[in-house]
Write a protein that binds this DNA or RNA. Structure first.
Lengths: 346, 346
DNA sequence: ATTAGCACTCTCGGTAGTCGAGTGCTAACC
DNA sequence: GGTTAGCACTCGACTACCGAGAGTGCTAAT
C-alpha cells in the first residue's frame, strides 16, 4: 500500500529518530527535528492514521510513537536509500579478507569478523555447500612411525586434512601404494557419495590390500564429510549484550540460538538467494522475534551459495548494514572464485 | 587461623546452604537444616564471631549471613572434602577425549567442552607451549598449479599446515628440491628461533634458489609461529548468562574478558602449576571480582604444562569442580603423552 | 484540509506506611 | 564460662498514593 507523501515523510522521520535515540517521539518533537511546515495537530492526525494502518504503535498513552515491524518493513522496502560503501571502506574490507584468503572457511571467518566489526552487530557466515563437489586429489604425508595425514583436495577449493594411525610401521612405499590406489578409486567421485557403504565396497575392491587401510579409508571418509558439510561461523555474538536497550533475557536467548550450529544452519539454509531483511516475527524462530537479520548470499561459480548475515536488534541502521554486507559479499565471491581457480587448475 | 569445631561446622553449613540456594541464611533456618543441638542464640553468637573474623557478612541488617571470599577460602582450604569422580564418570571423560585425540589442540578443545558440560560452568584450556619444541620435519603437498601446502611437524606433537602460492608452475621436482633444502635447514631448529631474521639468513644461504621460495619460507614461518604459540580455547562461556543470581553487567564483563584471547592468555600463564582455586578479588582482573577460577595444569613429559580451568560465580560447588578438573587433566596428560610418542618416534 | 484549544490518560519519581526476617544485647541459667 | 530465652531494634521489600509532565484525541473554528 502506498502512503501519501507527507505521511511517508513522517513515518520516515519517526523511524530514523527512533533508530538513533531508541526513544518514542511525539508530534511536537518531531516538528522540531524535521522542520515540517505543519502544526503538531496535523502531524498528530497523520500519526493516528499511521497507527491505524499498523505502521506505528504507542508503548503507552502518554508516550510518543515507535515503529512496528510493518513500519520498519515499509521503510526498508519503500523509503530507505542505500549509500554504497566508500572506496576506502571497500579497500579496508578487501585488505582484511585478503589476509586470510587461504581457504573458504578462513575467508568466511574473516568476513563474519569484518561484518561484525563494521556494523557493531553479531555476524554469521556459512561456507559454500560441497554437496556437488568432487574429490580432486588425495595426498599423504607421514607424520610419525605409525601415523600419517591424508590431505583431501576437493573441487570446491576446500582442503581437508585428517590424521590416521596404522598398526604397522608406515613407509614411503606404503604411502605410495595408498596414493595410487586411492586416487584411482576416489578421484572425480562426488563428496556426497562417499559414505560408509561406498567405503566398504571400495575396500572390497582392494582385496587383501584393504586389510592395511581401515584407518586411511576412515580418514578419507571423515575428510570428505568435512569438505562437503556446510561450516557455520559466528562472530561478535556477545556484542548483542551491549546493545543500549537490550532486554537481558531476550539477548541471552538470541546468543544461545546463534551458538547452536544446528539450528543456525537451518535458519541460514532457508534464507533467500538475494539480499534480504527479515524483521522480528518474520523470522521463523521465536528467539529472534525482537531481532532482525540482514542477509545476503555470495556467489560461487556464478550461483548464489553460502550466506553472510548480520543479526541485531530490530532497531538498527538497515541502510548501513545492507551496504556493508553487500560489499563484503562481493569481495568474498571474488576471493573464493580466485581460490577455486588456483586450486583446481592443476 | 584455626576455628573451633562448632564454628567450623556452622561456617560449613552456611556455605553449603548458600552454594545451594543462593540465599542468605539466618540462625533459626540454619538449625532446622543442620540439626545442630544448640539454640539459635548460640548460633547467633558464633555467627557474630565469624562475622567479626571476616568469614561471613550480612548483606543488610535484616538478612541472614553469606560467606565472604575469606569464608570460601577457609572452606576450600580446611573444610571441603573432595570426592573423586566415579569410575563411570572417568570412563565418560576418557571416551569423549579419545574421540578427538588427533592433536593437542583438539584434545584441549574437547577437554574444555567436557569440563563445561560436566560442571555447568564456562571452561577454558590452553595448549602446551611450543617454546622449547623443535622442527621435526617439513613436508609438501601440491594443491594447485600455483599453490602447495607446507606441513610442519614439531617435536611437541603439533602439526601445522599452511598454504603458499608461487608465481611459477609448481612441479613435483620443485617440491622435492624444497623438501630437501628446507629439511636440511630447519630440522632440529627450535621453533622459537624461526623469526624473520632467521628466515632471511636462510634465504641468503640458498642463493638463487631462494628467489623461488619467498612464499614457502613465509608459510613455514607462519606454521612455526602457529606451532609454538599457546592456543586458548573457551567453551560454554554463555552459560554464565544463565546462572541463577547473575548480575547482567558483571556476567557480560566476564564473558567479554573470556572472549579476549590476549588477556585470557596472560591470566592462564600466571596460574600456579598445581590445582588451585582463586576466588573473587584474588583474581588480578577486576572483571573477575565476583567470579572464581578453579584451575589445574596437565603434564607433558612429566612437567606441568598448559592449563585447564573452570570459571564461574564465587558461589559454586568447589569440591565437584575440582574433582572433575583433576580427572580431565589426568586424562589429557595421558593422551597428549601418547600422541607425542606416536608422532615423534619416526 | 488544517489548526488552536482543551480535557484526558498514563508513566515516572518521590514519599509514607506496614510487614517480617533477622539481629544484638541483657539477664538468667547450667 | 558457655548457653539460652526474651525483647527491642534495624532495615529491606512491598504497597499505596500523589503530583508533574508528556503526549494524545476530539471538537470547533478557520
Amino acid at each position: 500500500m502506498e502512503l501519501a507523501a507527507r505521511k511517508e515523510k513522517i513515518l520516515s522521520a519517526i523511524i530514523e529518530s527512533y533508530i538513533q535515540t531508541g526513544e518514542p517521539i511525539g508530534s511536537k518533537a518531531l516538528i522540531n527535528e524535521t522542520g515540517l511546515e505543519v502544526s503538531s495537530a496535523t502531524v498528530r492526525n497523520d500519526m493516528a492514521d499511521l497507527t491505524n494502518k499498523g505502521y506505528l504503535i504507542q508503548p503507552h498513552t502518554s508516550a510518543g510513537r515507535i515503529p512496528t515491524r510493518q513500519g520498519y518493513r515499509y521503510y526498508v522496502d519503500n523509503i530507505m536509500t542505500i549509500m554504497p560503501v566508500s572506496q576506502s571502506g571497500r579497500d579496508f574490507i578487501e585488505a582484511r579478507l585478503y589476509e586470510s584468503a587461504d581457504s573458504p572457511e578462513s575467508i568466511l571467518q574473516s568476513a563474519a569478523q569484518v561484518v561484525s566489526e563494521l556494523t557493531g552487530l553479531a555476524a554469521v557466515a556459512s561456507t559454500p555447500s560441497g554437496e556437488d563437489s568432487r574429490i580432486h586429489k588425495i595426498s599423504f604425508v607421514q607424520t610419525g612411525l605409525h601415523t600419517a595425514m591424508a590431505v583431501v583436495i576437493a573441487s570446491n577449493g576446500i582442503i581437508k586434512t585428517k590424521l590416521f594411525r596404522c598398526e604397522f610401521v608406515i613407509t614411503p612405499e606404503i604411502l605410495e601404494v595408498f596414493d595410487r590406489a586411492l586416487n584411482e578409486t576416489f578421484a572425480g567421485i562426488r563428496l556426497a557419495a562417499i559414505n560408509r557403504p561406498f567405503i566398504q565396497t571400495a575396500a572390497a575392491r582392494f582385496g587383501e590390500l584393504s586389510l592395511f587401510m581401515p584407518g586411511v579409508l576412515m580418514a578419507i571418509m571423515e575428510a570428505a564429510k568435512g569438505a562437503r558439510s556446510v561450516g557455520i561461523c559466528a562472530r561478535g555474538v556477545t556484542k548483542l549484550l551491549f546493545m543500549p536497550d537490550v532486554n537481558f533475557v531476550k539477548a541471552r536467548a538470541v546468543i544461545e540460538f546463534l551458538n547452536n550450529e544446528h539450528d543456525l544452519a537451518r535458519l541460514l539454509e532457508n534464507l533467500p538467494p538475494d539480499t534480504s531483511v527479515s524483521i522480528g516475527r518474520e523470522n521463523s524462530r521465536v528467539e529472534l522475534e525482537s531481532s532482525a537479520i540482514v542477509s545476503t548470499r555470495y556467489d560461487v561459480g556464478g550461483n548464489p551459495s553460502g550466506v553472510i548475515a548480520a543479526v541485531g536488534p530490530v532497531r538498527m541502521d538497515y541502510g548501513r548494514v545492507i551496504s556493508i554486507l553487500e560489499c563484503v559479499s562481493d569481495c568474498v565471491s571474488r576471493l573464493i572464485g580466485e581460490l577455486i581457480d588456483t586450486n583446481a587448475n592443476q
